[in-house]
Simulated assay, not measured.
Amino acid sequence: MIQNPGGFWRRLLGLLLDAIVVGVPLAFLSYILTGDTEGNFFTSLISFLYYLILPTVWMGYTVGKRIVGVRIVKVDGGKVGIGTMLLRTFVASIVYMVTLGIALIVSAFMVGLRDDKRGIHDLIANTYVTTDKPQ
């Protein structure tokens, strides 16, 4: 049962904070290790693992989500696992790429306009983002 869904602006701010808190240091580290100023496999892999693993071990939080007070949970309120996060990140990314980003725009509108605040990636993985703290 969906309770206290996290809205569009809070989720967007969490994503931006993740980009600043994790993305910028990761890009700097990647530059030091590889000398590459553009995106590379190292950066992409670490970023993917961050969004895949951290929510499974930290009760649905990423650093940015924790700062803004939202977390990812299953629709039944349960903890997300690796399989759930694979669906939410990897499969949803494929959908967004295949549709040339159109599904991503639709998903943003869904988060902003739906009562349950679920985007396409949430529907695929049977998750939602909530302001409820873990029990």
Rank of each mutant, 00 (worst) to 15 (best):
I2P: 05
I2D: 07
Q3W: 00
W9C: 00
W9M: 00
R10Y: 00
L12Q: 01
G14F: 00
L15P: 01
L16H: 05
A19C: 14
I20V: 13
G23N: 08
P25M: 07
S30G: 15
I32M: 11
I32K: 10
L33C: 07
G35I: 03
G35C: 08
G35M: 06
D36W: 12
G39P: 14
F42Y: 13
L45F: 11
F48W: 11
I53D: 08
T56P: 13
W58M: 07
W58V: 01
M59K: 10
Y61V: 00
V63F: 04
G64W: 00
I67C: 04
I67W: 08
V68A: 02
G69K: 00
G69M: 00
G69R: 00
V70D: 04
R71N: 06
V73K: 00
K74T: 09
K74G: 10
K74Y: 06
V75F: 07
V75Y: 09
D76K: 09
G77P: 12
G78R: 12
G78T: 14
I82A: 08
G83V: 10
T84Y: 09
L86D: 14
L86C: 15
L87V: 14
T89P: 14
F90S: 15
F90R: 13
I94F: 11
I94C: 08
V95N: 07
Y96F: 14
M97P: 07
M97D: 13
L100G: 04
G101F: 05
I102R: 01
I102P: 02
A103H: 05
L104T: 03
L104F: 14
I105Q: 07
I105F: 10
V106T: 06
V106N: 02
V106H: 06
S107H: 01
A108C: 12
M110W: 05
L113V: 11
R114W: 08
R114K: 12
D115N: 08
D116H: 05
K117N: 09
R118Q: 13
G119L: 02
I120K: 04
H121P: 06
D122F: 01
L123Q: 13
L123A: 05
N126S: 14
T127G: 09
Y128Q: 02
T130H: 04
T131Y: 03
D132F: 03
